[in-house]
């Protein structure tokens, strides 16, 4: 009398099939080292860079390595906290945020340029904003259309805001009562160059790299100020990584990173994409200033 039984039976069978299929796949999988990075640049570029790095790490560490792209800063911090990511390339601020939330996380390495990192302020030439001579000149940016990068970026927001504040410019003094947040360093260049914003601040390394590649139209956009140095990007690794991958694994990762050099073509390519000549040891203590400024500006609670 009830004809529906066949339908139900069919769907249950299908469900069981799918579940079995997948559980068998997941059981056979080996422990994978999952790496990630804050999305501070164009994703295609990040995909290229981390594709290469993944292969290199996998070869040297002899474990499967996977790169998971993450599309916003706080999500990267969370993914590290939740253990979805094992090894992450963080900015200064996001790294401090991540360490505060993830007990035992270790600062592993930084680039040679990160110990003395800088931001640049740029402007669209048609805006007639003059090149600044001193920090105090930043005052001239008040009343202008100004954009930061991502709201959690160290070099694209935190430090520029810090220097602006020192010069006496608060965020509501920009035109429209608030600054823009372009989302990434590349976006800041594009928006300032297009004239959508009169000025902006970004990571100096990204700026230099884009200028070198000829991606910046220097007829339209120029540097108006370079900040004093501060410590920025660094690698963080989970504290329990040795328990999962074997004793001495952290050391092996460090050695691999420090070992990247200009002799191998791939490694040279990776380093150039990172905008560095090599990776060097880093310490948590280097980021004390960032933490202080982060707290002061309310980005660390």
């Amino acid at each position: 009398m009830i004809k529906g039984r066949n339908y139900i039976k069919a769907s249950v069978l299908l469900l069981v099939n799918i579940l079995m299929l997948n559980s068998s796949v997941s059981v056979s999988a080996q422990e994978t080292l999952v790496i990630g990075a804050i999305p501070d640049q164009n994703p295609e570029r990040l995909n290229r860079l981390y594709g290469l790095l993944t292969d290199e790490l996998s070869k040297s560490l002899k474990v499967p390595v996977r790169y998971i792209p993450v599309t916003n800063y706080p999500a990267t911090v969370t993914a590290f906290r939740t253990g979805d990511l094992d090894l992450v390339w963080f900015g200064g601020l996001s790294g401090v945020q991540a360490r505060l939330q993830t007990p035992n996380a270790k600062v592993l390495a930084q680039r040679d340029i990160d110990a003395n990192f800088r931001s640049v302020f740029i402007s669209n030439k048609s805006s007639q904003i003059p090149v600044m001579k001193t920090e105090a000149d930043l005052k001239r940016l008040s009343g202008r259309r100004f954009t930061f990068g991502s709201e959690s970026s160290t070099s694209g927001r935190l430090m520029p805001q810090h220097f602006l504040q020192k010069a006496g410019v608060s965020l509501n003094q920009f035109k429209g009562g608030r600054p823009g947040f372009s989302g990434s360093h590349d976006a800041t260049i594009a928006l300032v160059q297009s004239g959508a914003y009169e000025a902006g601040a970004l990571n100096k390394q990204v700026w230099d790299a884009r200028v070198k590649k000829g991606k910046v139209d220097q007829k339209k956009v120029q540097i108006i100020w370079v900040t004093p140095p501060y410590a920025d990007y660094h690698w963080l690794i989970q504290g329990d990584i040795n328990e999962r991958f074997g004793e001495g694994f952290t050391k092996k990762v460090k050695k691999t990173l420090f070992g990247l050099n200009q002799n191998s073509p791939t490694q040279r390519r990776i380093l150039s994409l990172f905008g560095a000549t090599r990776f060097i040891p880093a310490e948590a203590s280097q980021y004390k200033d960032i933490e202080r400024i982060g707290r002061q500006l309310g980005k660390i609670k």
Binding site: P74, G298, K301
Partner: peptide
């Protein structure tokens, strides 16, 4: 909300 989330200020 976005600002508070990105600075992990749960109380806010």
């Amino acid at each position: 909300l976005q600002e508070s989330l990105s600075s992990f200020g749960w109380s806010e």
